[in-house]
């Protein structure tokens, strides 16, 4: 009993004296933008959030397995829904934060010209090459990509040529290095790499709207997590996200 009280007091004292840095798990496509937002937050005198980037699918599975994190920013609503169904989110903290678009990219030096439209000759443009994209079975950028190509009626013709990256940045790297002649990534990813150029923008009607929800995790006990979540919605943070090419909700 006495031990428990002493322990509680020590915890409270530490929380008051030394705010802990919140741990944020975020979609790989947020790498540069969220880092910039976290830097700005730290400059305001807060402990710098610890950021971990990976495929939303991989992060969702880690959270479901009990990862001790405070916030999750997903690149699609589905993985957030999955965590909500498993009671891993703190009720009332889920907000749709950003939007994005899907683009077809090629290495910067490539001369490929293609109009992204129904039935467009993607297979012919690829030739024997691979189409780099995030894993269409699970990773958001890949799921949107498959949805868009299916809607445009070309998925079945290129399906066997897809090189699946473990997240969208792995797909971006394959095109940037010239190993794949074409790839599908988010518009913001293409903007982040000078080694690729955008061949075409996928029609917004060809896939579900790309939305990035943020939520605080049920097991988060760090108030800094909530403070940083609110900062993500502030005009300052939103201006930063816009600078990196994201749309705002």
């Amino acid at each position: 009993m006495a031990l428990a009280v002493a322990f509680g007091l020590a915890n409270a004292a530490r929380a008051a004296a030394d705010p802990r840095a919140p741990i944020v798990l975020a979609a790989a496509s947020l790498q540069e933008s969220l880092t910039a937002v976290a830097d700005a937050w730290a400059r305001l005198g807060h402990p710098r959030p610890i950021l971990s980037f990976a495929a939303s699918s991989a992060l969702a599975r880690q959270i479901d397995a009990g990862a001790p994190a405070d916030l999750f920013v997903s690149a699609d609503e589905e993985w957030m829904d999955y965590l909500a169904q498993h009671n891993r989110l703190r009720p009332g903290t889920r907000v749709s934060l950003l939007t994005n678009r899907l683009v077809l990219i090629a290495p910067a030096a490539s001369r490929i010209r293609l109009a992204v439209a129904p039935g467009f000759p993607l297979a012919r443009a690829l030739g024997p090459g691979r189409l780099a994209m995030a894993d269409p079975d699970s990773v958001p950028a890949g799921k949107y990509g498959r949805e868009a190509l299916t809607a445009l009626g070309v998925w079945s013709r290129v399906e066997r040529q897809v090189a699946r990256g473990e997240n969208v940045r792995a797909a971006l790297a394959l095109v940037a290095r010239g190993e794949a002649p074409l790839g599908i990534v988010f518009a913001t990813d293409a903007l982040a790499s000078p080694a690729v150029r955008v061949v075409g923008l996928f029609p917004a009607t060809s896939h579900a709207p790309i939305r990035y929800p943020v939520a605080r995790l049920a097991r988060s006990d760090n108030p800094e997590g909530e403070a940083f979540r609110r900062f993500l919605l502030s005009p300052q943070a939103r201006a930063t996200f816009r600078r990196f090419g994201f749309g705002l909700r």
């Binding site: 699918s57 991989a58 599975r61 894993d135 079975d137 699970s138 990773v139 066997r160 090189a163 699946r164």
Partner: peptide, 20 residues
């Protein structure tokens, strides 16, 4: 990379299935 039927060996398939 992780291509079904081409380079998706046991460990890579397990990794991919883990995310489903």
């Amino acid at each position: 990379s992780n291509i079904p039927g081409e380079t998706r060996t046991l460990p890579l398939a397990i990794y991919a299935a883990l995310q489903l």
